[in-house]
């Protein structure tokens, strides 16, 4: 096992070419658990935390770019939180303050756990994942990036450089159910975005399937029922049916953290609540 600590992205890419089996390490909050628990013994590690460019973000009127090494703590407040309230809400639910100081969006994408808190937000905001390799840059829509439980379409020679998001107008929020009031892994989570600018409603579900699930049928149904360029109506029947259609998209399982039935139920409740929050 060898550890490399590059200070530039170019250097990191060169190292990755030279060590194709190297594990890329961002905040360490996933990889180090595997090492500490004796579940993974990487041959080689490229630690990305000292690459300053990865820890930067830009907020422009038409595009927000977040470096893969930006920690969650930086998304909780400031310009990123103002531009992307759902991401701020999600960041605030990640682990503990210590984890949020270390954990990054790039790490969340690299691990690609269905319970990753940042991922439903990226799914709902139709984020683009920007990868870089010796072959050059590659931009992949989130929906094509995450391919399964802890699986993604990053090529072995690629490094996740950043995430691009188009700003929305209107409402966006994220909520997550866990069995403790802080520092808890998601049992079910929902990101809801109502973009009046594009007259669209987007909803993404976490921890209830092998990947983050976009409830596209429910989105389309709702868009057919309402004028999404305006504030959404809040009558009970409409909201209830929307929430049921969202829950129908979930593909949850039973495990030691919860049951499939509860997870599906929780998705329905969260979908209803976030919808109603958008109308307030």
């Amino acid at each position: 096992m060898s550890v490399h600590v590059p200070t530039s992205l170019t250097e990191a890419i060169d190292l990755l070419v030279a060590n194709p089996t190297a594990r890329l390490l961002s905040g360490g909050t996933d990889t180090m658990v595997e090492v500490n628990f004796n579940r993974s013994k990487p041959e080689s590690v490229i630690a990305l935390r000292r690459i300053a460019a990865l820890r930067e973000y830009t907020v422009d009127s038409d595009r927000i770019v977040i470096g893969a090494g930006v920690p969650y703590a930086m998304m909780e407040k400031g310009p990123l939180a103002a531009a992307l309230p759902a991401l701020a809400a999600a960041a605030r639910t990640v682990g503990s303050p210590q984890i949020r100081a270390a954990g990054t969006l790039g790490g969340n994408l690299g691990t690609c756990s269905p319970a990753g808190d940042g991922l439903p937000v990226l799914a709902a905001l139709d984020a683009t994942i920007n990868l870089r390799s010796p072959r050059g840059p590659r931009a992949v829509p989130f929906a094509e990036f995450m391919t399964g439980v802890k699986r993604n379409s990053r090529a072995v020679d690629e490094i996740i450089e950043s995430v691009s998001i188009s700003p929305t107008t209107g409402f966006q929020d994220y909520a997550k159910v866990g069995v403790r009031n802080a520092m808890v892994i998601s049992v079910a989570s929902v990101c809801f975005v109502h973009d009046t600018g594009s007259s669209s409603v987007r909803i993404a579900l976490g921890a209830v399937g092998p990947t983050i699930i976009r409830a596209r049928e429910a989105e389309q149904w709702l868009q057919s029922q309402v004028d999404a360029s305006q504030q959404l109506p809040s009558h009970d029947k409409l909201v209830a049916e929307f929430a049921q259609r969202v829950a129908a998209a979930a593909r949850p399982i039973d495990d030691h953290r919860s049951t499939a039935a509860y997870r599906r139920h929780a998705i329905e409740v969260l979908a209803r609540r976030l919808y109603l929050r958008s109308t307030q």
């Binding site: 703590a73 984890i99 100081a101």
Partner: peptide, 20 residues
Amino acid sequence: MLDGDAVCSCLVLSASAVGS
């Protein structure tokens, strides 16, 4: 504290903390 951030030292790969 790692560069002023409170973090869990069990999740920091020691060799990656050079320069911090």
